[in-house]
Design a protein around this nucleic acid. Structure first.
Lengths: 229, 229
DNA sequence: CGTGTTATTGATGGTGATCAAACGTCGTGG
DNA sequence: CCACGACGTTTGATCACCATCAATAACACG
């Protein structure tokens, strides 16, 4: 069985944001480095404290990447879509990182060993731009969220989270209030109160684990700099 | 006049954290790309909204990098020491970034044009590791601060900030309470109250713009993951 | 049909932002 | 050399936001 189905390969060549701008040959050669690996729902790709070395690309499924404080609170700072990379810097860091990646649904990944990855980067410099851009978005997102934590109210953070999720995953969103609170850095109760408010305004509709965004414009970003998942 | 004095060059070759692990020849060839540029106290290296392209290395001085929210609140997320790089990703991003870098004291920098930088990286792959490690520290620091914002009290954040600053700059620290509040993401008043508390405990001594750390151990990190400036 | 998960609402309290006012210190220019 | 203004420091009072605790209801799945 080939590593990727026809549609999957074509998606990596044309649709996947990470690979944008790279030539077909380079992408194919790159994908050829990977081995397929399946993670069942709830399974960990990496745990907190792991020395994560492999670079991972999600083929199908959904993966949540989150950090966890000593008090047990955890917050989601990345949700991987099909085609998205994870742990791009792992091969270079060689140290423990305090993040965990977990499959939300049954997911299939393409895993590239660190040595293969670094060798490929050295011999195909154009991919450096793609890597840097991806990491840059992640850094800007982290800083943007720090600013939000400083001087945005919880309800505003939740609205921003909903807006960004809608941009990435469409509607309906398959997330619980608990999921949303992990993204917006607040509690479940506060999230529910805000959601109930947004429902009254007709901006969203909700049903156990599903959120329909009826009025995306009302959730529009006001802050300079995007939140990205 | 040569770009770097003898001591400066020797510092870049042996002391500067960023260049650790690179061969002497590579470092010299790299430094050779740069032009010297002086920034007076208070002058901006980049402003919010700039398309920053050049990569900057601080030779002597002190530079604050901070982000600014729409409400005008700003927080410091990086303080550059001699030898530290700034805007490593700029050459690859080609878009507005919402950060500003400003000279706290009279500072001299080595500026490398984006095209020279990317060309050098492509022809000297070992430097990719240094770049990635530097960026990795920055990302981990940002995430660590997000966790702090979530479930650490303001006083704990201030203590952590003081501990990290002490590790990087020694004692006394030449920062005002306002500076500290920008780093710990809180207000001047809250910072002053905490400082006054720490003074009573004998952990610090302060005088207008100066902070002596008498008991660094008391400020020790408890959280998993370092804060870095 | 029972159990675990998610949603919901109310009451309470603490943290820390905000406003206000005053004082010490430093540098500058008349 | 002094007066002034800018800046940093300090303290007190107030109050909004939101985390926390608690208890119940609705729903899904075996």
């Amino acid at each position: 069985m080939p590593l990727l189905s026809c549609e999957e390969q074509s998606f990596f060549l044309n649709g996947a944001p990470f690979f944008r701008g790279l030539s077909k040959d380079v992408i194919l050669a790159f994908l050829d480095l990977g081995r397929s690996k399946v993670f069942k729902k709830g399974e960990f790709i990496t745990r907190i404290g792991d020395y994560a070395e492999d670079v991972v690309f999600l083929i199908t499924g959904l993966i949540r990447v989150c950090a966890c404080s000593s008090s047990g609170r955890q917050f989601t700072f990345l949700l991987l879509n099909a085609g998205d990379p994870y742990n791009l810097m792992g091969p270079y860091l060689k140290r423990q990182r305090f993040l965990e990646a977990r499959a939300i649904i049954h997911s299939r990944c393409l895993c590239i060993h660190e040595a293969d990855f670094t060798r490929f980067v050295e011999t195909h410099p154009p991919i450096i731009t793609n890597i840097m851009q991806w990491i840059g978005v992640g850094i800007d997102s982290a800083h943007s969220r720090l600013l939000d934590m400083m001087d945005k109210k919880a309800s505003e953070r939740i609205m921003r989270a909903l807006g960004s999720l809608h941009a990435k995953f469409g509607s309906p969103l398959l997330f619980t209030n608990q999921d949303i609170s992990g993204i917006a850095c607040t509690t479940t109760e506060t999230t529910i109160r805000t959601m109930s408010f947004l429902r009254e305004l007709g901006i969203i509709e909700t049903r156990r684990g599903k959120i329909w965004i009826k009025d995306p414009v009302a959730l529009k970003d006001v802050e300079f700099g995007d939140l990205t998942f």
